[in-house]
């Protein structure tokens, strides 16, 4: 199975440097999480991998060959902005996409039926797309990406608009494809999903790759510097800690907080304060940072002191 290698790729639009000398690798049988704030250059990177646009410098290799029309046939793409022909029938349009990927007409029809079956949607075959709900269209859209059994799969926010049950069906399919040795690129802003699905991470900010590597290694490298605290009672002490620049509160609710230790603050400083001010503590755990925390830290560091909302 070929691996995907993005090698020193740069793309410029007028004066905007969309992607700046980016290099990373996605391996077969693994899922690479492609992350980054809006406008970071993710879509441009994906488009260059999909051979929709070409880089100004650098190259994208699939196996040991540059991507081109040949690799498009071996690649399935689910773009972030979903689109289907509204007035065309579901079966007809899926068959069309299959044929464009190089399947014969009869083979395309067979596979469309198979996949609709898989998603419990056999009776949609003859229905017009604009009669389907958003979630249904979402599944149809996913089928366009996997119909031709591609070696490389690019999924941009595949779970948006799906209910938990359908999301699970989709996740099963993605995991199956991974087990079958496909190379999968997964772009998302949903950090819990990234954490759950991805083996590797590539984080882009302002066109540059700021974090790249195996998810577990990255987490480890950030160290155990995050405290998960469940408590009862007043929470004013958290504000106090934060105003003294000792910590940053990442997630906060009435009785829960995810606390990031700053400036070498020791965990027991937080514990002391908590013991002094709360009525009860049901959890105090020192953990590796969450993906969300890594995202914020890395992007903030890259963009200077600018506050970033995820």
């Amino acid at each position: 199975m070929p691996e995907l290698r993005v090698d020193g790729v740069t793309k410029r639009f007028d004066k905007v440097l969309a992607v700046d000398n980016a290099s990373f690798t996605a391996s077969p049988g693994r899922i690479l999480g492609l992350l980054g704030p809006n406008g970071a250059g993710k879509t441009t990177t994906i488009r260059m991998i999909a051979y929709i646009t070409v880089p100004d410098t650098g190259q994208v290799l699939f196996g040991d060959k540059q991507v081109g029309p040949w690799s498009q046939k071996q690649m399935g793409y689910l773009p972030e902005e979903r689109g289907l022909y509204r007035k065309m029938k579901v079966g007809e349009q899926l068959t069309y996409f299959g044929e464009l990927k190089g399947l014969s007409h009869s083979e395309a029809v067979k596979r469309v039926k198979h996949w609709l079956d898989r998603f419990d949607a056999s009776d949609w075959y003859g229905r017009k797309t604009n009669e389907l709900s958003k979630g249904m269209q979402q599944k149809v859209q996913f089928v366009t990406a996997v119909l031709h059994d591609p070696e490389l799969l690019i999924l941009d926010e595949p779970f948006v608009g799906l209910d938990p049950i359908n999301a699970e069906v989709l996740q099963d399919v993605i995991m199956e494809l991974k087990e079958a040795g496909r190379t999968i690129l997964f772009a998302s802003h949903r950090m819990e999903q990234v954490e759950q699905l991805c083996d590797d991470i590539c984080l882009i900010s302002q066109g540059k790759i700021v974090v790249n590597g195996e998810l577990r290694e990255i987490k480890k490298s950030f160290g155990r510097n995050t405290i998960l605290l469940d408590f009862e009672g007043p929470d004013g002490f958290l504000d106090d800690l934060e105003s003294r620049q000792l910590v940053r509160i990442n997630v906060r609710s009435k009785s829960h907080a995810e606390i990031r230790l700053l400036n070498d603050t020791r965990p027991r400083v937080v514990l002391d304060e908590a013991l002094r001010h709360t009525h009860e503590i049901s959890r105090f755990e020192l953990v590796e940072p969450s993906m969300r925390e890594i995202f914020v830290t890395a992007v903030t560091a890259q963009q200077g002191a600018e506050a970033i909302e995820v």
């Binding site: 999909a50 051979y51 929709i52 029309p69 498009q72 046939k73 690649m75 793409y77 773009p79 902005e81 979903r82 689109g83 289907l84 022909y85 509204r86 996409f97 464009l100 990927k101 366009t144």
Partner: peptide, 14 residues
Amino acid sequence: EKINRVVEIIVSSV
């Protein structure tokens, strides 16, 4: 095709 955004899928194939 452009408004529907179908075009991005098609140009990833042809």
